[in-house]
Design a protein around this nucleic acid. Structure first.
Lengths: 201, 201, 201, 201
DNA sequence: GATGAATGAGTTTTCATTCAT
DNA sequence: AATGAATGAAAACTCATTCAT
């Protein structure tokens, strides 16, 4: 049985989310996480190589669930545009539903050192590939412009979503994040210019 | 004469940019910055209240120049769309032209604690207001959709630019950042959908 | 088991006495105390909140023993005058027997900041209460003048003893401190005037 | 003209008294004293060798005045006992009349390092000699017991006075210090025992 | 497997003093 | 005589990680 499936593994990760959300990245000492998890400091090191490993594992676990859920949601959908809408809505819903996780991923984990963020980016790649797939599908189906620069478009979609969620977290969740999905989708599909075609309709 | 205008003030800030870019945020000790600036450790504290104050001042100075230059570029332009293009191109140009500054603002300063980042965000607001102004102008002139949610659109534009520059920095400046301006502008104006109107024209 | 009873607690306090006596208050760095105690610097902070806490605890422990011993010595004695003599002799004996402690309490700890000295004074209060008790007993028994101002008399007795010990420490323990007890007691009982009564004897 | 007589010399010493009384010994930086004195930091060093020299000079000047005044008060007095009373009363009066000076000499200057306190003790010697002289006079005149140990008695008198004033300063001058003179004198003359002789009178 | 006491490296900041003007 | 900008040495404390039990 691998460590990943033992109860204390998840227990420690959940404790880390809570401790980081409540105390901030720099005040999330290993001993605090251990206390929150109800284990001894040393026990942490039976499940994780070091502190950084807790954070990477946290991100992997949470991002894994995140991607799985999004893929499940968009699976049966035909239209690329609708797939994109569902990705946006699920992205916003999942983070709106878990304030602590949102704080940890949008604010706190970004304070980690460059090394850790490189590893986080590797985990993120899987999510970016989901976006890429939607884009390629849309281009093949003629829904999206054939001239899209995939990498650039993916960066813009991800950057857009990320900034929106971060702003929402920094505003202390004052407004309804999910309600923005429709507008976000419309912007990503049509930009901010006046829809010329419609004026001729 | 205020400290801000004394030569050592700027000298220390330039030293901080170099030291942070080369060593990373967490390895940028005050003594290293002092050595780079060619002053004694204690001299730093004649110009800055504490280490955090160096970083905030750095961001204020650089962001101030950044905004001033962008405002100068877009000033005489009539069309909001062209203003937006110029903002994008200048944003990318300025950071492409100063690799060290790009590393510091896109990667290193984000590792700072929440307190510092809150202060950084206050400085950022002035830039976001420039974007807002372009959006409002464009809406009034009929160039941009009248239904734009200003806050949301501004977040998407800034999030897009920020993610593009960050990706470019993390790729270690492997490609031409400024060359992306045209595509970015097109995406922000038209989104990723097939330009329906044009097919009917 | 509370920290106070763990062996390292006392070990660190004894180390602090030695280091302060040998190096002086301002040269008694935490790392020096740790080295003398045979523990790591960090271990100090498992037993003491901060450096000041070491010094307060040192004073509390030593003053606690001091008072306990004096109370034990004077307990069975009937006469208030003899109680006072025993207090004087024990006070001088205990400090004469521990040169290092005498240096620390008479000279070095007085260099501490006001905050620490306020806390030291709180500990001292318990000793002053022992003096008060002797004075009240003596007044009730008719041994001491009924017109004594308790607070003032206590201050004079303590001030006398303190100055004598301090002078002895500053003289670098050149003479026999305990031998002074008899004269000190006589002075405190009779003052410096000619014993009028005796002239009539 | 020696420095001692130049106006800035006294000006700096007065500034030091004020700054130390208001801020405490450890918060009395040279630059603060300079500002209070209305001179530049560097000017201090035209009048004093170093910071310690300010403090020693302060003590010398103030103690000099102190001794001069006390000597003037006791000069014409015949009786040693009355001389002693006048010394006590003047000692208490002078410090009661200058709260700032009392704080500085009783509390703040004692935080200085051992080296400085050794020099302070040298200045104190002159005062102790005044006490010694009274004692010797009294012994010669038959007012004081012929068996007095001069050094010890002087220590007890000084220790008594010092402790009384220190207690008063620490109580934040809550009671009338000078009013205690009579009782203090009576105690120093007769001790705390019941005046046996008088009962026979 | 679990514990938790012990370790020790590493950095910001203050402030007395100097000296060119 | 007076200035005040510049200097640079020095120390408390935290916390990730280990390892004997």
């Amino acid at each position: 049985m691998v460590k990943r499936n033992k109860p204390k593994y998840k227990q420690i990760i959940e404790a880390a989310v809570i401790v980081i959300a409540e105390n901030g990245y720099h005040q999330a000492q290993v001993s605090k996480i251990a206390r929150q998890a109800g284990v001894a400091d040393g026990t942490i090191y039976l499940y994780f190589k070091n502190k950084e490993d807790i954070l990477i594992s946290l991100f992997q676990e949470k991002m894994g669930e995140f991607i799985t859920k999004i893929e499940a949601e968009i699976e049966g959908i035909e239209s690329a545009s609708e797939k994109l809408f569902m990705l946006i809505e699920t992205h916003l819903s999942l983070l709106a539903a878990d304030h602590q996780l949102a704080i940890v991923t949008q604010l706190e984990l970004r304070q980690s050192n460059k090394e850790l963020r490189v590893k986080i980016n590797e985990v993120l790649k899987k999510y970016l590939e989901v976006i890429d797939l939607i884009l390629r599908t849309g281009m093949e189906k003629g829904e999206f412009s054939k001239e899209l620069d995939i990498r650039l478009t993916r960066q813009m979609i991800f950057g857009t979503l990320d900034e929106i969620v971060t702003s929402w977290v920094m505003s202390e969740h004052k407004y309804d994040l999910v309600a923005l999905a429709k507008n976000v989708h419309h912007f990503l599909m049509n930009g901010c210019c006046v829809p010329v075609s419609k004026t001729y309709q």
